[in-house]
Design a protein around this nucleic acid. Sequence first.
RNA 1: GUCCCGUUCGUCUAGGGGUCUAGGACGCCGCCCUUUCACGGCGGAAACACGGGUUCAACUCCCGUACGGGGCACCA
Length: 462
Amino acid sequence: MTVITRFPPSPTGKLQIGNVRTALFNYLFARHHNGQFVLRIEDTDRERSTDANIQVIFDALEWLELECDNKDDVVYQFSRRDHHAEIAQKLLDSGQAYKCYTSKEELAELRTAAEKNGEHFIFKSPWRDKDPSEAPSDSEPVVRIKAPQTGETTISDLIQGDVTVSHDTLDDFILLRSDGTPTYMLSVVVDDYDMGVTHVIRGDDHLNNAFRQQLIYKAMGWDAPYYAHVPLILGSDGKKLSKRHGAVGVAEFKEMGILPAALRNQLLRLGWSHGDDEIISDAQAIEWFDLDGVNKSPAKLDYDKLLNLNGHYIRESKTEDILPLVQQHLGEIDTDLLERALPALQERAKTINDLAKSAEFYFKTPPLIMDERAQKAIEKEYAPLVVSKAITLFEETDTLDTETAQSIIQSIMDQNDMKMSQVGPLLRAALCGTMQAPDLSVVISILGKDVCLERLRSINTN
RNA sequence: GUCCCGUUCGUCUAGGGGUCUAGGACGCCGCCCUUUCACGGCGGAAACACGGGUUCAACUCCCGUACGGGGCACCA
């Protein structure tokens, strides 16, 4: 059997981090089993589904590098509505579904009445066993499935284990609305069946739906897929993840300067683990991932850990790969200079945004604006002496690699009987305008003789 | 309310009857490295929700309680 998993987002807004995790799990599970991972756009909510939102999904998946196997043949659920309706008709024909003429309003009344009495509301349609000839001619019916009323069903969920539900908690849910459009419950089942989906890996919030959906499979005589219900991701306070917890949409993580590899790694470790491994490559993830390692309890997103992970991936990245990302933040700058500056900067950044910020000083024109600590360093009484000494020594040199830079600094210390703790901060301030920068000799060699001199001279004339 | 699911350091987790004086990671604290910020190294504080069983033995199995999450739409 070829494993086929699916990712069926609704294009109704941003792509949430929780959905991304289930997408990742589906992706990894399919790859692990040499199967397929397919995308389906669930655009049946015509009010909220927009082309822009569909693009949001494509962009997110592309950014995350979660490639689906039906890229040129993405399924749009709304386009299949006629087929869904046909299936409902079949169920009607075989007597496993019926037309119900109870109106939305009547239903709402019954529901509130039951709630008022503190009763659990299960709608029992009077039309379930009525003869079709009694149907009123002035109203359009919904089509409901005939759910079993006694007994129980057990689903062997690949994550949740055996879950049993008594049939008296199952209602005759709606298959076709009164306007003839199919409901989600019908559409997913038909689409999953037609797409050959073997494993439905989705959020925990669908566990109850699995019992309803299985009813449709059974009524059609289809084999139901395997189910795996993944616990949801909660906010740091244990409540449902929302805006106030920080970033929740994929795009927001991108904007923060998070690398997709870091996000994938973090998401993978939420509810799943492989021993004590923390840094997991894509290849290892595919090799190791399986459903039996997924926890049953919901997890909270740890932004600090994400940042730490991101720092790791930035350090590990090839400079050429992150160069364009950083450049986007800096505008029109000398790319060669940035490329030379980046390796040392990568060591200390947690996000791409931090990285860009830390590179800024390379591109400033003198006189540099000193930050508070740099200003303090530059105000030392021996500053003029050190600066003029540095100017002299820089002027005398031809090459300026890290070694000559180091020897120049050494000369300044030797000639004036000073320590590194005096010379270092001062030159750093003069050259960078900030104290947060890489090793001085590295900075000097990257800046080059001319720029160094220019910056030092601008200090002198102050 | 009702049905389903869960509960190990602050967080993500390892561990599935004895090897647990409960391991790792992030975060936090201290020290070291050091011209800054990071990185790195070393060390520290920090958890089996509670109550009953079962057992020679329970964090691990069973039952309750508490707490948390999810579902209960002509939404998906």
